[in-house]
Computed example of a mutant assay.
Amino acid sequence: MKRNSATKSLCPIHSSERVFDIYQQLSKHQPVSFFNSWPWFSTWLACLPDDIDVKFVVHYEGKEPMSCFFLGINRQRQNKLTKQRGYLNCTGIEALDELTIEYNDIISASPKHSEQLISAFLDLDDIEELRIAHSQQLDFTNIDKFYIRKTTKPAFCVALNNFNSLDDYQRSLSKNTRKQIKQSFNAYQGKFGELSLTLAHNTEQALAYLTELKELHQNYWQAKGKKGAFASAFFCQFHQKLIEDYFEQGLIQLIKVSSKAHTLGYLYNFIHNEEVLFYQSGFNYLADNKFRPGLVAHNLAIDWALNNGMSNYNFLASNAKYKKRLANKHDMLTTWVLSKKTLKGHVEHLLRKLY
């Protein structure tokens, strides 16, 4: 017989110790992604403005917590209808969600994550629609309880266990990609001297590298008429605190690629479960397209990963062509929108069909 289930919401700020205890209890059952790890969540909660409505939702079976997640709650008007929306581990506010959570999931003692989330969503009477960004684990295909929409995006990766060396990896790439990598290395070293990869070795140096990365990143994107990721004060605050609090635990990697005469650029990566997760970059672009800083920097970072026991080098969600060219596999990350079949849900569904 199935045990009685119930879903409860806690304030993650006022009930912080209880939230941490439940998270720790449930996260022991299965591996979590870096974006669902406590370092990510604790930094996020510490940086969120006080007026943001985020709940910590716990689904119980009997008296035992079985799953948990954070839920941003937002009342928004769309398609002429106002709905109460919940956002899994996000706020639903664009300026705050530019952090771009990936491999998004719930924390669960049960392997049936999708079923756990459905049960919790149905229990949350005030939430009419649930939005889940960039999830690999969760799947709501053929679920008829909701109106469902979805979009997908690849996360290109290099499975490093297939290779013994950087040369071995490069031989697996297309002839044209190998040519461009060789051409770029030769161009940089011919003009500036031998290139090297330097890791930030303490928090102070990591923050200095981040500052230099930010400047290069912003210069590039603003020259293209874009604002750049670091234009957001919240984005900057989050990553400053994440590095301050967790760099010394070995979870974060700041890489500088340079010669004695030239700084090619920087990579900002996360290290989690023997995987390198490439998150951001800042490059010193030159006019001649023989100089391809991304190809060079990522090849040196992949070389480091191969020599330091990493199993995967993950470029994260993107359709960028260079990531596809450097990868040998990909994950599919799906963004789901689940709408309850209420009267308002029916009306919105019909409006979408019409327009």
Rank of each mutant, 00 (worst) to 15 (best):
K150P: 07
H201M: 14
S172L: 09
A159M: 12
D168I: 13
F238S: 02
L264P: 07
Y322M: 00
N36T: 14
K224R: 14
G228S: 01
S16M: 04
K145T: 14
K227Y: 08
H262F: 15
F283N: 05
R149W: 11
K290N: 08
F146T: 13
R325H: 12
K323P: 06
R131K: 13
K145A: 14
W38G: 01
S110P: 08
G309Y: 09
H262I: 13
Y285M: 11
L354V: 06
P154D: 01
G86S: 01
N186T: 13
L71D: 00
V57I: 02
K182S: 03
V158M: 03
N176Y: 08
P293F: 03
I101D: 06
K8G: 01
G265K: 10
V337P: 04
P31S: 14
A6Y: 04
E102H: 10
F140L: 08
N161D: 15
D288R: 14
G345K: 09
F56W: 00
H113T: 14
N74S: 12
L264D: 05
R178D: 00
R178G: 00
Q253F: 02
S110W: 10
P12I: 00
L242I: 05
H59G: 10
Q116I: 12
A95Y: 03
N89T: 03
W40A: 05
Q170C: 10
